[in-house]
Amino acid sequence: MEIEFTLNGVRKRVQVEPNELLLNVLREKLYMTGTKYGCGIGECGACTVLLDGEPVLSCLVLAADVDGREVTTIEGLARGEELDEVQKAFVEEGAVQCGFCTPGFIITAKSLLMENPNPSEEEVREYIKGNLCRCTGYMNIVKAILRAAGVIPQTP
């Protein structure tokens, strides 16, 4: 079947199977490889994208279901070379190590800050608990999100 949706502000038309997952269509058909596979069963958050502004796990969403809707992936956040606030904070607070979990975290953080522009540290932790990171111990990720929200200052 053919679906049409907006991907990072651009209209896309693509042939998909009825059982095909959004994650695979993004990665294998549209070559948007920033969204990562980590488990395929909703346990790691590496595949998080925004669907009509809401965070979803693209490994659990059928591509057919995004027909007519709007998808934002990690590739859609920066304006050219200019990074989004959350991306900038991740770079500056050392929140990136291997980087494989990073796109999922940044999308999740974006969604948190849209819902709650002034989160407490506890709220940040709770909100990102579905995203796994094996490298950072989450400390600098939490710091980066609070910093992007302006809750804490930049670490010197």
């Binding site: 490889t33 969204t35 990690i74 770079v91």
Partner: peptide
């Protein structure tokens, strides 16, 4: 490598 990693 951070910029490449945060932009996917």
């Amino acid at each position: 490598d951070a910029v490449a990693k945060v932009t996917g």
